[in-house]
Design a protein around this nucleic acid. Sequence first.
DNA 1: TTCCTTGCAAAGGCTTTGCACACCG
DNA 2: CGGTGTGCAAAGCCTTTGCAAGGAA
Lengths: 142, 142
Amino acid sequence: MTHCHTLIAALRQQGYRMTPQREMIVEALAHSGRHMTAEEVLEVVRQRTRAVNIATVYRTLDLLVEKGLATRTDLGEGRVVYATVRHGPHIHLVCRHCGRVQEADAALLAPLTAALQEQYRFCCDTGHIALYGLCETCASET
Amino acid sequence: MTHCHTLIAALRQQGYRMTPQREMIVEALAHSGRHMTAEEVLEVVRQRTRAVNIATVYRTLDLLVEKGLATRTDLGEGRVVYATVRHGPHIHLVCRHCGRVQEADAALLAPLTAALQEQYRFCCDTGHIALYGLCETCASET
DNA sequence: TTCCTTGCAAAGGCTTTGCACACCG
DNA sequence: CGGTGTGCAAAGCCTTTGCAAGGAA
């Protein structure tokens, strides 16, 4: 059973109806194996059919997030990306200069989250982190 | 010389004209000693006069950021906050549940930024970080 | 006087929402 | 069939921008 079928089954189990639109949206995100904006998801789906509206994409992605099947990360500057949960925890490294997004191992956060818990009693969510700075290429240009 | 006078002097030195609007906007942000949204800055200024427009607030805040006199942090969910540089580097801990924003010592980031530099060649900007999770109160409620 | 700044209103980009119709179960 | 889900278009929210008038230097 593929990943997108797992997600579709999960929605069905929770009493949601499975429409062609939802299937295609889930497939697009699950198969990409990466984080995507709502607009990017729509673009992928549109390669198969035009019978999907951006509003439906937003509604479906929000549903996935709400049900814990996907995550939403706000990269700032109006860029919000989604990814299915199988695409495990990772840090988004956003380059301020070229806008490229790199992903880093979320395990690196362990010392920080421990310290925040210890000193501030703040339980940090490691699934949705975006950090800003300069990527190697842009740093060397400066 | 107060902090806001320092900022105003810095702008003047760089050839910018000092208008009552700019003065009030800089004062509002500098005196608050915390991070504020553009709307909040406008609100404070409006307690003194109505002769300031939100567009001017945005333009002035952007100018401060551009000149390195203030920082802009995107907290996600459309919340963008500004703070003067004197309000040193800190991490914004944003509670997903109650929306409250706590600040934490940016020094805690040192191990993480070192690892990102080492392993990903990514130069992380520690002045604009927002982390999400649950504050102590909301975590205990759950 | 010069031309930087401002206010106003309109435009922009992204996202949400109201509504009637479609269609899953 | 009943009620959820969809498309469409409009509205909303935050922010930026064009333009003419205002005012700092």
